[in-house]
Amino acid sequence: MTEYGGRRTQAERDAITVEIGYALCSAVFAAALVFGAVAGPAFAFDLSDAARGTLVGSGATVAAVVFFARVVSVLMRFRRPDQPSQPGRTNPDS
């Protein structure tokens, strides 16, 4: 991103768009996996209606939490600066 609040270049806008798309797609995939793991037994086995409702409700709730957590974690990681806080200095371990 540009410094001091300047306008973003087309490449920066494209990078943001790609990152948002990646965040959403990976979040949908992760949420679907979690929902399938939690609610899957409700459809695979002959369970009572109460047990089936509990598993599906829990699966939907956990999947929603995973979705939002994944989106936030990907987008926050994208915002981290690529350069050290003090230009010209390197990590002492390097």
Rank of each mutant, 00 (worst) to 15 (best):
R79M: 13
S26W: 01
A30L: 09
S85C: 05
D93T: 02
S85R: 12
D82E: 13
D46W: 10
A63N: 09
N91H: 14
D46P: 01
M1P: 03
Y4N: 13
I16Y: 03
F68L: 13
F78C: 02
S26V: 03
G57C: 14
R80P: 01
L24D: 02
D14I: 07
G57P: 09
S26E: 01
S58I: 15
G21S: 09
Q83T: 07
R79V: 03
T9Q: 05
C25V: 10
A39Q: 07
P92I: 04
G6D: 12
A32I: 07
L33V: 14
G6F: 05
F67A: 14
S58G: 15
A27D: 00
N91Y: 05
S58A: 15
A31N: 06
R70A: 13
N91W: 14
S94Y: 12
Q10V: 07
P41W: 09
E19Q: 08
A63F: 05
G5M: 10
A60E: 07
R79H: 10
G21D: 07
V65P: 08
L75I: 06
R77Y: 04
V74Q: 03
S58N: 14
R13L: 10
G36Y: 07
V56T: 14
V56D: 08
A42I: 01
G88S: 05
D82K: 14
F45P: 01
D14A: 13
F78G: 02
P92W: 15
P81T: 10
F35E: 11
F45C: 11
E12M: 06
A11S: 08
M1K: 02
R80T: 05
A42G: 06
P92M: 06
A63E: 07
V18G: 00
N91T: 03
Q83S: 04
M1V: 04
F78N: 04
V66H: 02
P87Y: 08
A39S: 02
